[in-house]
Design a protein around this nucleic acid. Structure first.
Lengths: 149, 149
DNA sequence: CACTAAATGCAACGTTGTTGCATCGGCAAC
DNA sequence: GTTGCCGATGCAACAACGTTGCATTTAGTG
């Protein structure tokens, strides 16, 4: 895991530089954490991950700003979990996220991406303007099903 | 509008009594406010509505508890708006809300119910347990489209 | 190295929602 | 009509999530 993130560092740095902004430790570490994560991470998840890294902890506010900046730069995506909390995931260059299908665990709040294609949006009444569709499926992930069985 | 809510009061009181709980001013006023509202109301919306009513204001915590109680009693429904904030709507006795399709306005945060039936849920990977599906459609409602045109 | 704009850290605040506990008041029984 | 119980309310405090303002630091440039 450590070797993997280390090997991805140059790619991360050049990705940030390509957007035309400064390469800072906070941005690199946050993006690396998102890329190494198994699924969409909440602000608290990322903060905990970074705090465990011996490096000086990243400020809570800075983390919010970095995450928002990553989204604005197109390097990450923002979604909400089952409790309405924002979750962030690293943008995979070749993955289409528009109209993605998500499974949201009501136990741990985790978000899982499903392979199934999203269904077609229904007809809207006159005057409504469509921006995005999200087919959200709620339930419990295998871990949570087992944990309280 | 006043005449309408006044005429609905007995119905509200008997509906609450039918659930087998006490008829209190807070519950009656909150349910009346939900029924009179043009769409799903956030906690803040309801609080503002009640504060404007000359009657003594309902406590913030009581309002949360009443709203949750109305949902538990089946007299109201709970959903989240585009910002992840809970919104409550009076339950229409003959409307099926399971698997409902919602349109959420990113401008005003409003929630609109669509008539279209929800699509069938896709196959889940092994171990996942399905609880609910929600086909969320985001965009702008006619009012917001016009307002900033 | 020095400079400057951008990024960070810190503090404080705002909103949304919850919990614990003392008090009040529907409603039923007498 | 009065009494009394238990549910409902009000109050205070707390917790999670997110934002804003401002002083300080730092990445990148000349």
């Amino acid at each position: 895991m450590k070797a993997q993130s280390a090997s991805a560092l140059p790619a991360i740095q050049s990705a940030i530089r390509a957007v035309g902004s400064r390469v800072t430790p906070a941005r690199v570490r946050v993006l690396a954490a998102l890329q190494a994560a198994p699924g969409p991470q909440s602000h608290a998840d990322v903060e905990e991950t970074l705090t465990r890294q011996a490096h000086p902890a990243v400020d809570r506010v800075t983390l919010y700003r970095v995450l928002d900046w990553l989204c604005a730069a197109g390097l990450a995506h923002k979604a909400t979990d089952a409790r309405g909390v924002f979750r962030f995931s690293a943008a995979a260059p070749n993955v289409e996220h528009a109209g993605h299908v998500h499974f949201r665990c009501t136990g741990c709040g985790g978000v899982f991406c499903l392979k199934a294609p999203p269904p077609a949006p229904p007809k809207l009444p006159r005057g409504f303007r469509l921006a995005a569709v999200a087919f959200d499926i709620r339930g419990e992930c295998p871990r949570c099903v087992k944990s309280h069985a």
